[in-house]
Design a protein around this nucleic acid. Structure first.
Lengths: 190, 190
DNA sequence: TCCTGCTATGCAACTCGTTGCATAGCAAGC
DNA sequence: GCTTGCTATGCAACGAGTTGCATAGCAGGA
């Protein structure tokens, strides 16, 4: 269970309300961790009760007030402790692989459109990542940041995680091409 | 939710008891879908109640009796229906990426051992996959299967899923090398 | 004026997944 | 004879995740 920790990291990068966190989980953080606003509100409340985060009411003009959360000392300690925990074996859940093996007992050709849809989704995400990389990690901004802090850990680590996302999407696209070629061999017969 | 469907696919490949299924989920199926024996027994009971699978008591010598399940017509229909459903957007949960971004607010160097452990786990899994590929999908066996059925969908589709696993592990190993190189840059200062 | 849509927070109910525990037969070794 | 360990099945409790719904302020357009 790491939703708490993902929230702590996100709040350390920048304090936010539950709503803002939910939107981050649709974007940057969401690339490697998903969560709905329900989970986020529930967990935020628990974290506030446990003293992991501090809440602050922020009046806004033109929109409802919000509760902005920031990380408290206890939260920082909890994150640190989790980071030093050598756990995690890595579990996988890949529906598409189940479908592909299942297709042997149904119509393999019927899966082609589905796989093509997935491939397109991965292409879109790859394009999105690459655009983000160009925007945030290359050119004058990168140099400016470099001048400001030659070894900016936060930035560098965000970049290496993004590179992981890029590598993942590229791998998936290549593999789905392989899957499509395999499925095509079963197309004519049935 | 696709545990039912993963079980259906596995039972179509070969009928099995709950216990045997649980062991498959530690091996071949487990490479892209995990499940404990608790989930499996619970879901099998529901599937039996729904008429998706048939149960058969099998007395054994030297060990307790088992209940062997096989897929019923209703189960086959349910699987087929699921296969034709164009759902699934693909959600991700990657603890290690959270840890890496979190390391910016702690000691980046402390993560090195953890990342190395993960890299080793992925290397082990890659070696395991490659051994399985050599065993099941190359050499005389493959030719024999080829002679028996020039387009054996079940086998081909199992192979392409395995190739996906191989591609994934290779990608992860490369990425973790990248992560280690990045973390190393923050090692000396702290 | 009313409707749509975005920001912002939350409850309730349900399903899914995990963990700890219990039972029971039999085999092998000390 | 006792313990350990594997096969085989299952209950109970809890925690995590999903879905549907509710509320409320305000903006903008028909």
């Amino acid at each position: 269970m790491a939703l708490e920790h993902a929230i702590l990291v996100s709040l350390l990068e920048k304090p936010a309300s539950g709503y803002e966190l939910a939107r981050r989980f649709d974007r940057s953080i969401g690339y490697f961790w998903t969560a709905t606003h329900q989970q986020i509100y529930r967990v935020l409340k628990r974290m506030e009760d446990d003293g992991w985060v501090d809440a602050r009411d922020v009046p806004q003009q033109g929109r409802p007030d919000k509760k902005e959360y920031s990380v408290a000392d206890l939260g920082r300690a909890a994150l640190s402790s989790w980071l030093h925990d050598p756990i995690e074996p890595e579990s996988v859940r890949h529906d598409l692989a189940v479908k592909i093996r299942g297709a042997a007992f149904d119509d393999p050709a019927a899966l082609i459109r589905e796989v093509e849809r997935h491939r397109q989704a991965h292409r879109d995400r790859l394009a999105h990542y690459l655009a983000g990389e160009t925007r945030d990690f290359t050119g004058p901004e990168a140099s400016a940041a470099g001048a400001k802090a030659p070894l900016d850990a936060e930035r560098e680590l965000q970049h290496v995680v993004l590179r992981g996302g890029v590598a993942y999407e590229r791998m998936m696209i290549d593999w789905l091409d392989d899957v499509l070629a395999t499925l095509a061999r079963f197309g004519p017969d049935r």
